Amino acid sequence: MIIDAHCDVLMKMYRDPLLDFNAAEPLLDVSYPLMKQGGVKIQFMAVYLPEEIKNPDVGHILEYVDILHRRVLCNPDIVLIQSRSDLQHVLTTGKRGVLLTLEGAEGLRGSLAQLRMLHRLGLRSVGPAWNFANWAVDGAMETRNGGFTLRGQQLIKESNQLGLLFDASHLSEKAFWEAADVPGLHLFASHSNAKSACDHPRNLTDGQIRCLIERKGMIGITFVPWFVKKTGSVFITDLFRHIDHICSLGGEDFIGFGSDFDGIDNYIRGLENAGMYVNLANELYKHYTPVQAQKFLWQNGYAFLERSLPVS
């Protein structure tokens, strides 16, 4: 069983209205057949508005929500997870679950009312930035490394009041620490690796990793090749340097996975889509104890969601 904390399948389906999530669709890295093949039980699905969308607004976000409902949740075996009771239902049945997440707050245009509306529609996680600056915050690739704006600070407060998971994966380092100062915020990193194992601005410093461990926030190891290894072909076993490093900092109980499938066009060898999670699981069982492998594959992610989602 697998929990995957980040993919961009909704973006691909937004771009191509003919893509069928519930069929064997070769253009998708994540689909219902591939989830079944790879043992993916819970999949986070991001609303990411790509840069070709000029002047994004909440209407674009709602188009993604509509895609989720019409083209994913039309499958009676897929449940939108909004609460711990939904989480438990998925765990104890043959159903599979999806969580709706927001990657980049550009489309909100500073409106907290729109954030509240999206929460009512099932949004359960917000990552305020993509790579660069917006009205709320600087992203990890913004060279000035700024933090949250005043309106961005209100976004944090509102997210906290709503009980939203708060995704630090694309935040600038300054913004990360500003978010970390907020008591009770469900801070996690959906798809980031360890900077000590691969020096990339999108990866987490040891200090950030220790902070997330202290706050019991999940760290989703991602499959973006250039976040795993600087040069050359990347193999599944290259992920283990990141896992081992986070474990060395005390993070064994907080490691999960966030593939970034459908948001990448270069892949780890043997891990080109969700159906190939079986290859990762097999390698994990070779290199770690069965208890550790199960933690990384799903138990840590499940525990994080059980701590963080509303009861009902």
Rank of each mutant, 00 (worst) to 15 (best):
N145V: 07
N145F: 04
N145C: 05
G146H: 12
G146Q: 09
G147Y: 00
G147N: 01
F148R: 03
F148E: 01
F148T: 09
T149S: 15
T149E: 11
L150Y: 13
R151I: 15
G152Q: 01
G152C: 04
Q153M: 13
Q153W: 05
Q153R: 15
Q154G: 05
L155N: 00
L155Y: 04
I156W: 06
K157T: 15
E158K: 03
E158W: 02
S159P: 00
S159L: 01
S159D: 00
N160K: 15
L162E: 04
L164T: 14
L164E: 13
L165C: 13
F166N: 09
F166W: 15
D167P: 05
D167S: 12
S169Q: 08
S169V: 14
S169C: 09
H170R: 12
H170F: 08
L171R: 12
S172C: 04
S172G: 03
E173R: 14
A175Y: 06
F176M: 07
F176V: 10
F176G: 05
W177D: 04
E178C: 11
E178S: 06
E178P: 03
A179G: 01
A179W: 09
A180S: 08
A180L: 07
A180Y: 02
D181T: 13
D181P: 04
V182W: 06
P183C: 06
G184H: 07
L185C: 01
L185E: 00
H186I: 04
H186M: 11
H186T: 07
L187P: 00
L187S: 03
F188K: 03
A189E: 02
A189Q: 03
A189S: 15
A189T: 10
H191N: 07
H191M: 09
S192L: 05
S192C: 12
S192I: 09
S192N: 05
N193K: 07
N193E: 07
A194R: 05
A194I: 10
A194E: 10
A194H: 09
K195I: 08
K195F: 07
S196L: 10
S196Y: 08
A197T: 10
A197Y: 06
A197P: 09
A197K: 11
A197M: 14
D199Q: 14
D199S: 14
H200V: 11
H200Q: 15
H200M: 12
P201S: 05
P201M: 07
P201Y: 11
P201W: 12
N203D: 06
N203F: 08
L204C: 03
L204A: 01
L204I: 06
T205V: 07
G207I: 02
Q208Y: 01
R210L: 13
C211V: 04
L212A: 00
